[in-house]
Design a binder for these strands. Structure first.
Length: 428
DNA sequence: TCTGGGGTCCTAGGACCC
DNA sequence: TCTGGGGTCCTAGGACCC
C-alpha cells in the first residue's frame, strides 16, 4: 500500500504577477513590448507596474505627477485603475483554482491559499505548482507564481522567492528543510509576512536582519518584547502551522467608503453630494452581505501635503436607534454628522463614511429590543440594488446629484472589456 | 494643479466598579 | 491624617496586510 507523499499539512500560495498591469495588458497585445503602469484611484500614484516598468526608476507608490516626465520619456502605457475589470478576472482565477484544489482561501484580489494535503493529483509538489501555473496561463492568459510550504507564512515566503529568483521558474517548494534554511538566510526580515517597516526597524536594532535570524529567535522572548502575533510568525517560519486555511469568507466587520476629490471641495453642498454618494456605496455593500449597521461615522479632511494651508480634519459618529441598512436612514444620519463637523474655509481633499458595529439581518429578526427594518424598506432597497446592478447609477438619492467637480479623476480608464456588452473588445 | 482605498487585529490606557 | 488594588469593558490608535 502506498502512503501519500503529503500526509503532513501543506499550503500553496498562488499570487498573480503584477496583477492589475497584467489585466490591462491582456486586452492590449500591442503593449507587449511596452512598460505598463496602473494608477490608484483619482489617478494619484503608481500602484502596479509590469516587469518592464519595474526596470525603470519608478518606485511603487510614487505620485503620478512626479514621475510623469519619466513615464513619457520611456513611452510607458498608463492606466487608471479599473476595478470592474480586475474584480471580474480575479473571480475567474479563483474559480479555476477551485477546480484544481478542493480547499481554497481567497486571500485578496490576486492571491489565494490552497491546502494541498490530500490532493490526489498532487504527487510531486513542484510539478503540481507548475500545473497550476500553466492552467491559469492557458485559460486566462495571466501569469502567476506558486509558493509551497508547511505553513502559510512560509508559503508566502516561498512565493516571494519564486518571483525573485528566475531559476525557480515561478514555483518554489520549501517543504524540504535544507532548501528552506538556504532561502530564509537570503530573505531580509522585512519581506516576512507580518513584518512591516516599524517591526523591521526594531528587529534590526536587535541584530535580526534576515528571516532565518527571526526563525531562530525565541518565541517567548518575542512574545514579551513584541506581541503574540510576531511570536506566531516565528513558529510559522519554523514550519509549525499556526494559521489555518479560512475557506469561508466572513462578513466584514467594518465597511468604509471614501475618496479623494478630483478637485478640492469648498462648498458644503458639494460635500453633501459626495457624502451622499459614499453612504449609498457603503449601504449597498452592507446589504450585499445581509448586514445592518448600528454605528456610523463621517470624516472630512484637507490635504496633508498642502504647504500653504494648515491641515484640517474632523470626524463624528453616532449610534442609530435601531440598526439599519436603509440608504435613506443612513444618509440622513450622515447629513447630521456632517452638520456637526463642517467648517467653512478649508479646501477639502478627501471625505468618507465608515459603518461599524455590524450585525446580520437574520440575527436580528427575533430580537425584541432592536426591531429589524420594515418589510417595506427591505423590499425597496432590494429593488434599487437590482436596478443598479443592471445599470450602475440608474437609481440614486437626489442629494447626490449627477456630476460634480469633486468626482474622482480617471483620465486613463480602459474599457470594461469583460463586464459590459457594449465594451467588449473587437478583434480584427 | 496633481500624493489611493479598504480592511484586520492587537495593545495601552482610561473609566468604572467593588 | 490616611488616598488600595484588582478586575472588566471600551475605545483610540498603531501596525500590519493587499
Amino acid at each position: 500500500m502506498s502512503v501519500p507523499l503529503n500526509t503532513k499539512r501543506c499550503f500553496a500560495l498562488v499570487d498573480c504577477n503584477n496583477f492589475y498591469a497584467s489585466c490591462e495588458r491582456l486586452f492590449r497585445p500591442d503593449l507587449k513590448q511596452r512598460p505598463v503602469v496602473v494608477l490608484s484611484n483619482n489617478d494619484g500614484c503608481i500602484i502596479a507596474r509590469c516587469a518592464l516598468a519595474k526596470q525603470l526608476p519608478i518606485p511603487m507608490g510614487a505620485p503620478f505627477h512626479q514621475v510623469k516626465p519619466l513615464l513619457k520619456q520611456h513611452r510607458v502605457a498608463v492606466f487608471s485603475s479599473n476595478y470592474a475589470l480586475y474584480g471580474d478576472l480575479s473571480s475567474r482565477v479563483m474559480q479555476t483554482l477551485e477546480q484544481l484544489a478542493p480547499k481554497v482561501e481567497i486571500y485578496s484580489i490576486d492571491e489565494a491559499f490552497l491546502e494541498l494535503s490530500g490532493v490526489e493529483s498532487c504527487q510531486d509538489l513542484t510539478d503540481f505548482g507548475q500545473h497550476i501555473r500553466q492552467t491559469i496561463q492557458q485559460q486566462l492568459g495571466l501569469p502567476v507564481c506558486v509558493g509551497i510550504a508547511p505553513s502559510k507564512t512560509l508559503a508566502k515566503l516561498a512565493n516571494y522567492a519564486a518571483k525573485k529568483y528566475p531559476q525557480f521558474d515561478g514555483v518554489l517548494d520549501l517543504t524540504d528543510s535544507h532548501k528552506r534554511l538556504h532561502i530564509l538566510a537570503r530573505t531580509p526580515v522585512q519581506e516576512v509576512w507580518g513584518v512591516g517597516r516599524k517591526l523591521a526597524e526594531r528587529l534590526q536594532a536587535m541584530n535580526i536582519d534576515t528571516a532565518l535570524q527571526l526563525a531562530r529567535a525565541c518565541p517567548e522572548q518575542i512574545r514579551k518584547k513584541f506581541s503574540v502575533v510576531l511570536a506566531r510568525t516565528v513558529n510559522e517560519l519554523n514550519g509549525i502551522a499556526c494559521l489555518a486555511l479560512d475557506e469561508v469568507q466572513e462578513p466584514k466587520q467594518q465597511i468604509i467608503s471614501s475618496r479623494s476629490f478630483g478637485q478640492r471641495v469648498k462648498e458644503k453642498s458639494a460635500m453633501q453630494q459626495a457624502i451622499t454618494l459614499y453612504i449609498s456605496r457603503a449601504a449597498e455593500k452592507l446589504r450585499a452581505q445581509h448586514s445592518l449597521a448600528r454605528q456610523l461615522s463621517v470624516f472630512i479632511r484637507s490635504s496633508r501635503f498642502d504647504q500653504k494651508a494648515r491641515f484640517f480634519g474632523d470626524q463624528a459618529s453616532l449610534v442609530l436607534e435601531s440598526p439599519s441598512s436603509d440608504s435613506r436612514v443612513l444618509q440622513q444620519a450622515a447629513m447630521q454628522l456632517l452638520d456637526r463637523i463642517w467648517r467653512d474655509g478649508p479646501s477639502y481633499a478627501k471625505a468618507g463614511v465608515v459603518l461599524n458595529d455590524l450585525c446580520s439581518v437574520q440575527g436580528l429578526q427575533s430580537s425584541l429590543f432592536s426591531p429589524p427594518p420594515s418589510e417595506r424598506s427591505q423590499r425597496l432597497m432590494a429593488t434599487i440594488d437590482q436596478l443598479n446592478q443592471k445599470h450602475r447609477g440608474s437609481v440614486f438619492i437626489a442629494r447626490q446629484g449627477r456630476d460634480g467637480d469633486w468626482q474622482m479623476q480617471q483620465r486613463f480608464l480602459s474599457p470594461a472589456y469583460t463586464t459590459r456588452w457594449d465594451q467588449l473588445p473587437e478583434v480584427y
